[in-house]
């Protein structure tokens, strides 16, 4: 009897806590999720898109929020990356989506971040992107990558 392995694979969730200015966790979580996805035998191109989204989204939380969570939901159809933070919020999401727009400090820029590419990168890699932000409260970002070809 043919067995559809995915059918019996439980939904896999990964979770990482991000504290303010904890820049290390962004790259670390991206590397770790990448390794997990490689073990699951996923397509390289999908893995790279997911890793880029995680990296940029987690970095945004570390730079702009006071604390937040990064969650990765893996289902047979798609991977959803979610960041949920408490902090500044984004006053103008359309402006933040504009390439080159950045409110990052000099210190962040010298680390190689803050060039105003974060959200544009996420949008480029995601099949679906939802951002819900309230100034002074926080931001919920959900990016989904589907396994079927775009």
């Amino acid at each position: 009897m043919a067995v559809d392995t995915f059918q019996f694979t439980p939904k896999i969730n990964l979770e990482f806590a991000i504290r303010e200015k904890d820049f290390f966790v962004a790259g670390e979580s991206a590397s770790r999720v990448k390794k997990t996805l490689q073990q699951l035998g996923m397509q390289q191109e999908i893995i790279k898109r997911v890793a880029v989204i995680i990296y940029e989204a987690a970095m945004n939380v570390a730079i702009h929020a006071s604390h937040g969570m990064l969650r990765v939901f893996i289902s047979p159809e798609a991977i959803t990356i979610e960041t949920d933070d408490a902090g500044g919020g984004i006053p103008d999401v359309d402006l933040a989506m504009k390439e080159g727009y950045s409110t990052a400090t000099h210190e962040i820029r010298e680390m190689g971040f803050g060039a105003g590419m974060g959200l544009p990168n996420i949008r480029q890699c995601a099949d679906e992107l939802k951002i819900d932000s309230k100034v002074g409260v926080g931001t919920l970002l959900q990016a989904t990558v589907y396994f079927t070809n775009r």
Binding site: K48, V52, A115, M117, G118
Partner: peptide, 11 residues
């Protein structure tokens, strides 16, 4: 720039 590496590098 990290973001540029993530956005534009191939492999």
């Amino acid at each position: 720039l990290i973001s540029e590496m993530l956005a534009s590098a191939g492999s």
